[in-house]
């Protein structure tokens, strides 16, 4: 086992209607090879053995791609370090004796379910409002190579499509805005010929849903771009701004 001793200040909240509070937990024997979530596993193991309620937190793939893990660690989404999710954060980023705050994503649109787990279904509803190309399953579509797509466009679309829907952008934004998430999908599909026919409708519908969910307004602080584990650029927000403006102006 490791040799670091840490003090965790963890947000505990029994349910959506509980007020919640920060609770201190000393953790000993932390190895620098542990991931942050494995360190929480060790703490939870200990809590269960003592008959106490373990800390609830979301996680699944533990390799930085599913987007399920979601902790606000020492004042930053997914903790210190860039281009990583919480599950990829390792304890060697911390020092013996550190005090670490662990909080859930804070947003009206992401209500806390329990402790550090939040409900991010708002993202699904934004996606359902228009984050798709209206094509049915069919074995008779045109060949994948029938429409060449400039490599730059395909690459840029990919850069946007790499979003994992974790919500770090919302959690980080001082305004709790979901613009980076929404923009990533709008931008991806508007860059591809397949997505162009319904680009305007999509931008209008997704923004309308985003506003309905209670997210804040983007004020271009750029914090989302910095904390995004996939490094999605503000350029995509600008593209959404353009798409939406064009849609509003030309809409009949």
């Amino acid at each position: 086992m490791g040799n670091m001793k840490l003090t965790l200040k963890v947000w505990r909240q029994n349910g959506p209607n509980d007020k919640g509070r920060i609770v201190d937990y000393p953790v000993n024997d932390v190895s620098e090879d542990m991931s942050f979530l494995e360190m929480l596993d060790v703490l939870n193991d200990d809590l269960v053995r003592k008959g106490e309620d373990p800390i609830a937190f979301d996680h699944d793939c533990r390799e930085g791609i599913c987007g399920m893990c979601s902790l606000f660690i020492n004042g930053e989404a997914h903790g210190p370090g860039r281009g990583i999710t919480t599950c990829q954060l390792h304890m060697r980023k911390f020092k013996d004796g550190d005090t670490i705050y662990v909080e859930p994503w804070r947003s009206t649109a992401f209500p806390v379910i329990k402790d550090l787990a939040t409900n991010r279904s708002a993202f699904d509803r934004i996606q359902a409002a228009g984050g798709f190309v209206s094509v049915n399953t069919s074995g008779n579509l045109v060949d994948g190579n029938a429409v060449p797509i400039p490599k730059d466009d395909a690459d840029k679309a990919f850069d946007a499509a790499t979003c994992i829907g974790c919500g770090a952008c919302v959690a980080t934004c001082p305004n709790g805005s979901a613009m980076l998430f929404t923009a990533a999908k709008v931008s991806q599909l508007s860059l591809l010929p397949q997505g162009k026919p319904e680009a305007k409708r999509r931008a209008l519908a997704m923004v309308e849903q985003m506003d309905k969910e209670g997210f804040g307004n983007c004020s271009n602080t750029g914090a989302c771009e910095v904390e995004c584990p996939k490094g999605i650029s503000l350029e995509h927000i600008a593209r959404l701004n353009r798409e939406y403006l064009a849609a509003v102006v030309t809409q009949e």
Binding site: E76, N175, G214, F215, G216, A223
Partner: peptide, 26 residues
């Protein structure tokens, strides 16, 4: 609206890590 979007504030927020002071105090 932005205030309403985050009714519970963070106990610890490291704003300096990802944005300029001006941008979050407009």
């Amino acid at each position: 609206q932005n205030r309403k979007a985050r009714p519970v504030r963070y106990a610890r927020e490291n704003a300096g890590a990802n944005r300029s002071w001006a941008s979050s105090n407009m």
